[in-house]
Design a protein around this nucleic acid. Structure first.
Lengths: 258, 258
DNA sequence: CGCCGGTTTGAGTCCATTCAAGAGGAGTGG
DNA sequence: CCACTCCTCTTGAATGGACTCAAACCGGCG
């Protein structure tokens, strides 16, 4: 396999190494996954609700979201994804997609056949644990979003969402936590928060007037992180869990492996 | 290990076998997991937000919920769990709990040390996949709840929730889909749906008056399943995924295992 | 220039909330 | 056995936050 292709999967390995330690053979097994690069235009679908995806898709650049339509045609966005996210592991593992994954911007992605992923997990169980772990972090984000749309008013809801973006963008090495380019329109923010575009607009304006954010041409600046986090009731731990049991290879239960 | 204790984990094995095929050695490895039975009184906590749980907990009887409190003291419930659910695999895998798990009723549970679960996953990767799969189904439910609280009005929201209970209770062999005992108070239903207890009460009354449900002393009867599912925009697939790649051991990629 | 997608603003409406009070049951203690 | 408390459920009236409908604005682009 050409060197160039191997490098494509580097963001995936990097993310897995955030969750656990992997030895050389495990690392190269990850990088050796078969994959095919492709690009998706803005608004295009990576998977559609109801399909049976055969690939899982690593995001190399651009942004995507998980979304679902309800009977009256309204949309709910359930999560946002960016470089390094192995999006759609969820759908492809489950067999039939229960939601769509759509490109918010022009994207480059690497498609990995799901069979190869499963094979990898069987041969290298620790890699399997790391991938599992990755989907558990996704689940933690889902839970946080349930709380957000369920029990916070528009102001807090939006503040929380802006904080989550900030931390995740910084985590992915794509932006400064306190100054980033918003990859979404106000209508899409509305679909994230369960509000209407009009009300997002007014709420955004309110946050701006309070100096909690400064909006300038598609980007958001956060003058006082602590204040916005306070308003949004935002704690970042759920995005950056530290699992010492997985991370630290010196623990006894892990020593008697291999 | 005494025969009686081995049987305690049977509901877990049963659930895993819904997701995938396991051979004899894998099955007995699951049943051989160390565990300790205990009971939790109504309102008691299995894990509290912020703790570092050392066990994962299999529900033997009774009901529990995942919940989180927001800054103003309001609660959001994120999921309901029942017999056979290996609840808190989420929290214990992630190291530090990002939410609480609370007993809705008196419960009997079997506690399994998380280290033993990890060990099992490393020795029997297919069991690891099955457990992973189980948490992915949980994640699918989370996504559905985001849509529910985000984009459906009170009537649809409640109808959807009642449908989900119905299917899951039947799936767990605990009740008839169209006639079951509601394990929650109206205040707790409110915390599931992001509404107020008062409005749950009125909405419930409305569903009753429309003959979509019949309420009788703590239990719910559904005269016309199809109608209620229609109102609640409810599709049950997300609860009963069929993963032929995992289920069917005859597929080529699985044959060259072992 | 004129179109188009996205943003902004206003006015009126409605769904769900808040506040408040009463009714029904289960459990406890005198 | 009744009085008492506690919890849940129920109902009414008033309030309010978010929605709907509608129009205007703005920058980018063919």
């Amino acid at each position: 396999m050409p060197e160039q292709q191997t490098n494509l999967l580097a963001p995936l390995l990097k993310k897995l190494l955030m969750w656990t330690h992997l030895d050389d053979s495990e690392r190269s097994a990850v990088l050796a996954l078969p994959h095919m690069e492709s690009s998706v235009e803005k608004g295009g679908y990576i998977v559609r609700d109801g399909e049976k995806p055969r690939n899982s898709c690593l995001i190399l650049s651009g942004f995507a979201c998980r979304q679902k339509l309800v009977s009256d045609g309204e949309m709910q966005i359930m999560s946002i994804h960016m470089r390094g996210d192995f999006v759609d592991l969820q759908n492809s593992m489950l067999g039939t997609a229960d939601h769509s994954v759509q490109a918010l911007t022009q994207m480059r992605v690497a498609n990995v056949p799901i069979e190869a992923v499963l094979q990898l997990c069987l041969e290298y169980p620790k890699v399997g644990l790391a991938l599992w772990y990755d989907t558990l972090v996704d689940a933690a984000i889902f839970r946080e979003w349930i709380v957000n749309v369920g029990r916070r008013g528009a102001r807090k809801r939006l503040a929380h969402l802006l904080c989550e973006f900030a931390v995740r963008l910084e985590q992915a090495g794509l932006a400064d936590k306190c100054d980033y380019v918003m990859p979404m329109t106000q209508a899409q923010l509305a679909d994230c928060t369960g509000l209407t575009p009009v009300h997002i607009n007014r709420t955004l304006k309110g946050l701006d007037e309070e100096n909690l954010i400064v909006r300038t041409k598609g980007s958001v600046r956060i003058p006082d992180w602590h204040k916005l986090a306070e308003v949004g009731d935002f704690q970042s731990q759920y995005l950056q869990p530290q699992q010492e049991r997985l991370l630290n290879p010196s623990h006894s239960w892990m020593l008697n492996q291999v």
